[in-house]
Design a protein around this nucleic acid. Structure first.
Length: 670
DNA sequence: ATCTGTGTATTTTTT
DNA sequence: ATACACAGAT
């Protein structure tokens, strides 16, 4: 079948999807509700373009995560020949970095390294010095604030207004701290996640650059368009005249407001992108009608008016279940028990998806799965490059790849026995001084390490020798640090950690350089659990709702659907955040195909909250819990609360008020 | 003065 | 799982 007919690409699509795939408009927005075949449509569109003769390298698909990118790549590939493998699928950050790295003459920043969240905090802490606070704000809060400002393209002052309206802080002091942080980043040649997008966006403001970048692609497809923020729009806008955009999204699934996404921006798409055509997909192929009835009800309760009613092509099924428990342990136990029961009935583990609101709440479930030997993969847990031992090893690679990388130097040096921050800072200082006097990075390293054990200098030289083979370099770093790490983690799972280091080495194979390797995995992180052997076999998926975009399973367990969690207590007081919580729950509910099991604890605690900050929408919400008004007909309620048998009353003769002498007998103190 | 070890607190959500 | 504070060791 060298020549797949039109039907080969389009045969399984409904008329609306077919229309969306074949559209000839130069720019398109596909509004695709949950389960309406969003990925199917994107994949079919790519295959359609390929069939039309568009070379694969002229198509770019922007996705939200590494996993989504991999999914699109493999589905595009499908039964087509190998050529399609060169269709690029990556995240916004991955794309920006690729453009920047691919044309240093245009963008600059050669040799700068990318900081992940943890390292940004380290830099900020270093700037704040002793007390590690400014105006009562911790380093993490200032970094968040700054990132919010960048992503929403606000000034720092405006971001303080928006994020901390009730706090009495001096914006000048925060401004000074931010300036110092920026200066430190420049000195050390650091780029943050936001900087990557900002460098790209800033150069695209030059129309010649935009025209050149746009000319690389016939079409750019963007998935999860509703989560695009103003900073990302700053990249899209200048490219509109120079390429085609094919965007897919759903306003009801916008759950990244905290990162600056504004779900309403999707509504103004056709104003923003002249000549754009807007198409809608409304037929849901995923779930039964009962699951959609509940989801539709949840949205209809919102004051925002989503104008969305999903129709189930599959028809009727079982009612969603709502189980109430006394404790989270009971809740986790029930979920595990249900899955084991299903497994005895020959249902594979892969039938199940467990959705949690926070990483933290996932741990309780995880513990139960481990206890019962249920194979699982946790999306949302610790990422490989975030774990302490991996960072330790990578710090050695980093000082070789970017000698100015202070954070890495400090981490590496303090691993040496008898070296703490004071000694480490002194060594780094002498390194900087030697560099300032014109020494090469290697000479300066030798001077700075004069008082250190010989293995450190020898190890770094060896890593430098091996730098062209990144996996070798990782292996040498791990070998060099093996003794100190084995000691440092002797009581903290050293064996498992050592296995991670082997994974890192494997991932590093075939990378062109240390910086490229680090960048790739900082920009699209891998969860440690994805590398475990379980992930190769039949397994349950546990995921935060945010990491569950695009996932679906026959059964979905939504845990912690309790008052105080939906909406989360932290979101009370802000209508926008409250409504975002509603969408988070909506995304969770719509993951289920056949059976939706919601579990909760302490369902009867009322949560009172002041909503709004003085505007017209402000008011006192008596009981802020989405399921307070849930109509009975939509779910099957199952209480698991064990009725405690009432304690028998004491016989009447025993009920006289008694007093006990509570003083101590002093005895003979002479 | 500096480092190491222990106990306690703390976590929305992610690139 | 890690950050921070503090006490004790060298």
């Amino acid at each position: 079948m060298a020549e797949a007919g039109v039907d080969g690409v389009l045969g399984h699509l409904n008329p609306a999807q077919r229309e969306a795939v074949l559209t000839g408009a130069s720019h398109n927005l596909i509004l695709a509700g949950a389960g309406t075949g969003k990925t199917t449509t994107i994949v079919a569109r790519v295959r359609h373009l390929l069939r039309q003769g568009v070379p694969p390298e002229r198509i770019l698909a922007i996705t939200f995560t590494r996993r989504a990118a991999a999914e699109i790549r493999s589905r595009v590939q499908g039964d087509l020949a190998g050529a399609s493998s060169s269709v690029a699928a990556m995240t916004f950050h991955g794309w920006a970095m690729r453009e920047v790295r691919g044309a240093p003459d245009v963008f600059g920043y050669e040799g700068w390294s990318v900081l992940d969240a943890e390292d940004q905090l380290q830099v900020m802490r270093g700037v704040l010095g002793r007390g590690k606070r400014v105006e009562g704000l911790k380093a993490a809060q200032i970094v968040d604030l700054l990132s919010f400002a960048h992503n929403t393209r606000r000034t720092l002052a405006a971001a303080i207004q928006a994020k901390l309206p009730d706090l009495d802080v001096d914006p000048k002091a925060i401004g000074a701290a931010v300036r110092a942080y920026e200066q430190r980043k420049t000195e050390r040649k650091y780029l943050t996640y936001d900087d990557i997008l900002r460098v790209f966006a800033a150069r695209l403001a030059d129309d010649a650059v935009a025209a050149w970048v746009g000319s690389h692609y016939d079409e750019i497809l963007i998935d999860e368009m509703q989560d695009t923020n103003p900073l990302q729009w700053q990249i899209i806008d200048p490219l509109v005249p120079h390429t085609r955009f094919y965007c897919v999204g759903d306003d009801a699934q916008s759950i990244y407001g905290f990162r600056g996404a504004d779900f309403a921006s999707i509504h103004s798409f056709s104003d923003r992108v002249p000549g754009a055509r807007v198409l809608k997909l409304e037929d849901n192929y995923r779930s039964t009608q009962e699951i959609l009835d509940l989801s539709n009800w949840l949205l209809a309760e919102s004051p925002l008016g989503y104008d969305k009613k999903l129709r189930a092509v599959r028809g009727k099924g079982a009612k969603p279940e709502l189980h109430s428990f006394e404790t989270p342990q009971d809740e986790a136990g029930f979920i595990a028990a249900e899955m084991m029961r299903a497994h005895r009935d020959e249902l594979p583990w892969a039938t199940h998806l467990v959705l949690v609101r926070t990483n933290w709440s996932g741990r309780a479930i995880e513990a139960r799965l481990v206890e019962n030997d249920i194979p699982y993969v946790f999306f949302g847990g610790v990422k490989l490059l975030e774990s302490a031992h991996v960072r330790d090893v990578l710090s050695a690679l980093r000082v070789v790849a970017n000698p100015d990388d202070e954070v890495a130097w400090m981490r590496l040096l303090t691993l040496v026995p008898r070296v703490g921050d004071v000694t480490a800072a002194r060594a780094f200082d002498s390194f900087l001084t030697a560099r300032g006097d014109g020494a090469s990075a290697r000479e300066a390293r030798g001077l700075a390490l004069a008082g250190m054990p010989a293995w450190l200098k020898a190890g770094l030289d060896a890593i430098e020798q091996a730098a062209a083979r990144v996996d070798d370099a990782v292996g040498r770093a791990a070998a060099m640090l093996q003794p100190v790490l084995a000691h440092k983690y002797r009581n903290e799972n050293w064996d498992a950690r050592a296995r991670d280091l082997v994974h890192v080495e494997r991932l590093a194979a075939s990378r062109a350089s240390i910086l490229e390797f680090l960048e790739e995995y900082i920009l699209s992180p891998v969860f440690t659990s994805e590398l475990e052997p379980e992930s190769q076999q039949d397994h349950v998926i546990v995921s935060t709702v945010h990491s569950a975009k695009g996932l679906e399973r026959d059964w979905a367990f939504c845990a912690g659907i309790s008052a105080g969690s939906y909406p989360s207590a932290r979101s009370l007081g802000d209508v926008d955040e409250l409504e975002e919580e509603r969408r988070v729950l909506y995304v969770a509910l719509t993951r289920a195909r056949d059976r939706l099991v919601m579990t909760r604890t302490a369902a009867h605690t009322p949560v009172r909250a002041w909503v709004g900050s003085g505007g017209a929408a402000a008011g006192f919400v008596e009981d802020a819990y989405f399921f307070n008004t849930l109509p009975e007909r939509l779910v099957e309620e199952v209480p698991h609360v064990v009725a405690r048998p009432a304690r028998p009353a004491p016989p009447p003769g025993l009920s006289a008020p008694a007093e006990v002498d509570l003083s101590i007998d002093l005895g003979d103190l002479d």
